[in-house]
Simulated assay, not measured.
Amino acid sequence: MKLSIGFSPCPNDTFIFDALIHHKIDTEGLTFEVFFDDVETLNQKAFRGELDITKLSFHAFAYVSEQYALLDSGSALGFGVGPLLICHQEHFTQNSGELSAGLKVGIPGRYTTANFLLGIAFPHLTNKQEMVFSEIENALLKDQIDLGLIIHENRFTYTEKGLHKIIDLGNYWEQQTGCAIPLGGIVANRKLDQETKEKVNRLIKKSVEFAFANPRSGLDFIRQHAQEMSEEVMYKHIELYVNKYSIELGTEGRKAIDTLFNMAREKELIPPVQHDIYLIP
């Protein structure tokens, strides 16, 4: 049985899925057609119900929980892994509380969790320009935008380009909630039968465990998609975003996700979620 699966080309995702899609583990009769896309493109594909299995942001998941169920494995949650709000003009860093409403912010997508966190911390920053996450740094350097909301490997490269951090929104979230920050999850289309969905969940867990046991096994695959990243930066990226929550959410992971959804509903940032969001109760 062949299933379509979408995830990002970032090192954390290629690290997680290498063993699965390259059959380094027993895939129990499943094969996968892979679509590599940035997170906002994956969000949009999920809105259209295009893929059987996909990575998406937890913010976007609130809008598609009727179509997709959250797997217990493969998610990206953690401490110290949140998006950063950065700038080119250093004077913006002097008092982040006085950022004026008219400033143009480059964001990696409307439905990213990064944008959701920006909305919580700076609700007045509404002048936003959506762009591919990897283009935000250059847009700042060209003064096409005033502020940039960066995710993924750009956390490790912005200072080398002369850019400056205003605030770590992950730290902001942690201070507000005490929870790990839920960034992205892996979901299965509800049209799949339950046995297949549970099999995929089981296989992703095995794929993550294989990657942890054999961390250099997927190096060529990871490097192939890593956008000229050094090996050191690739593995820093993996260490940040792949952890115990990627193996299984557990009680703490679910608490963080529930907190995110509850806060979003209270602020009327997402519609009410009508279904049990988890594949495994």
Rank of each mutant, 00 (worst) to 15 (best):
M1F: 12
S4W: 05
F7M: 06
C10S: 07
P11E: 04
D13C: 13
D13I: 02
I16T: 15
D18A: 11
L20T: 08
I25N: 09
G29P: 06
F36M: 10
V39C: 07
E40Q: 14
K45S: 07
R48C: 02
G49C: 08
K55D: 09
F58I: 06
S65C: 10
S65V: 09
Q67R: 13
Y68W: 02
L70T: 01
F79G: 04
G80F: 13
V81N: 08
V81I: 15
P83N: 10
L84R: 02
E90W: 06
H91T: 03
H91Q: 03
F92A: 02
T93N: 05
T93L: 11
G97Y: 12
E98S: 07
L99Q: 02
L99E: 01
A101L: 07
I107L: 09
R110P: 00
T112C: 04
T113H: 02
L117E: 00
G119S: 15
F122C: 10
F122D: 03
H124R: 14
L125P: 04
T126D: 12
N127I: 02
N127P: 00
F133D: 10
S134L: 07
E137C: 12
E137R: 11
N138H: 13
L140G: 08
Q144V: 07
I145R: 00
I145S: 00
D146Q: 07
L147P: 05
L147E: 01
L147H: 03
I150D: 10
I150Q: 04
I151M: 14
I151A: 07
Y158Q: 01
Y158L: 03
Y158P: 00
E160C: 05
K161S: 06
K161H: 15
L163H: 00
I166T: 01
I166K: 01
I167N: 01
D168N: 14
G170F: 08
N171G: 06
Y172C: 11
C179V: 09
A180W: 13
L183T: 11
L183I: 15
A188V: 15
D193P: 12
Q194E: 13
E198H: 11
E198D: 07
K206H: 15
V208S: 02
V208N: 03
F212H: 14
S217G: 15
D220L: 08
I222W: 02
Q227C: 05
Q227H: 11
E228Q: 14
M229T: 10
S230M: 07
V233F: 04
Y241M: 03
K244R: 11
K244C: 05
I247K: 07
E248Q: 08
L249H: 00
L249M: 04
L249V: 02
T251C: 05
T251L: 02
E252Y: 08
R254D: 05
I257V: 13
D258R: 13
R265S: 10
P271C: 04
P271A: 02
V273D: 07
V273C: 09
Q274E: 09
L279F: 01
I280A: 06
I280M: 09
